[in-house]
Amino acid sequence: MSKNEILEKIYFNVIQGRFRAHDEGIDEGLKGQEAVSDLVTKALSDGIPAKEIVVDALTKAMGRVGSKFETGEYLIPDMLASADCVGGAMDILKPFLIKDGVESKGKFLIATVAGDLHDIGKNIVKIILKGEGYEVIDLGTNASADSIIDAAKENNVQFIGLSALLTTTMITMEKVVEMSVAAGIRDKIKILIGGAPTSHEFAMQIGADAYCSDAFKAVIFLRQNSVS
């Protein structure tokens, strides 16, 4: 298989949302055929640079998936299956990207705040950002403001993303903003918030940098706001 054929196949399978050979695709009849996991491994063993796999197959495919999602052709689980593929591929590619000196676009700390255990939304953002080339540090659910600020300092992150699905837990988001000021890191980081009870108004009220109604809004914000 030529280099272009492998990259084309990776592109096709990301759009089909197939990471492993036993996965079903968006279209019927693909189960059993080579999928992203095998193809990325094959591409690396054929000497295709990891960065080319990311740029010419994964990112390109995710752009197409994003368009299909925006037009309503793909539903959320279709888009997530593709994002799962990109996340899995990035796990395989990470050591090769590091070896090749390819840097991540930045460090993004993500957490569902204290008192809240909802994590599907957070995990969607996590996987989309991973596919975009960010290094994502996931503190999981029920994360206190203290633990978020400690981890942000320890990992020297540029972005913090906070999720809450309960009105009772949104207060932790405000605490994180306040504590980032007290810790002297507020001007070095951007704080993004999301989750059903949050809003642009709430984000502005607590001094966060952005409210993101979905994962793609977070991507758009990050593309427009790189922190040096």
């Binding site: 089909q16 949302g17 996965d23 079903e24 695709g25 968006i26 279209d27 019927e28 999602f69 309503g72 793909y74 539903l75 959320i76 689980p77 279709d78 299956a81």
Partner: peptide
């Protein structure tokens, strides 16, 4: 279900989503 998955009434599901 279609609405919760981001679609609309009488939505056509992809093969993978139908299988799921």
């Amino acid at each position: 279900l279609a609405t919760r998955l981001g679609g609309k009434k009488q939505q056509d599901f992809s093969y993978a989503v139908s299988e799921k």
